[in-house]
């Protein structure tokens, strides 16, 4: 995973989830971040789409469960674009 993509995802997630970026790592997930509820997850998906300029499919939206998985998905979609 490219560090730049991970950092960008982490920054967006920190903003949407209202946590400090240093508290987020690749394993951070709804189970470990208290503020990561349904509404924030939805806002996170929309914020990522807006920042990276593509839409996630329903399967992709539901399949990502952690910051690391999100960064990997973003990287994979960006390379296909």
């Amino acid at each position: 995973m490219k560090p730049a993509v991970f950092e960008q995802v982490r920054s967006i997630a920190a903003d949407v989830l209202e946590v400090e970026g240093r508290h987020l790592n690749a394993d951070s997930s709804p189970e470990t971040i208290e503020t990561w509820d349904s509404v924030r997850h939805l806002n996170l998906v929309l914020a990522l789409e807006e920042s990276f300029g593509f839409e996630f499919s329903p399967e992709e939206m539901d399949g990502v469960k952690s910051i690391g998985q999100i960064a990997a998905l973003v990287e994979s979609k960006a390379s296909r674009a």
Binding site: D37, S38, H41, V45
Partner: peptide
Amino acid sequence: EGLVNRAYATLAIR
């Protein structure tokens, strides 16, 4: 169902 079950969080977007 995302209102009460996180597994369906992104259904609202769909």
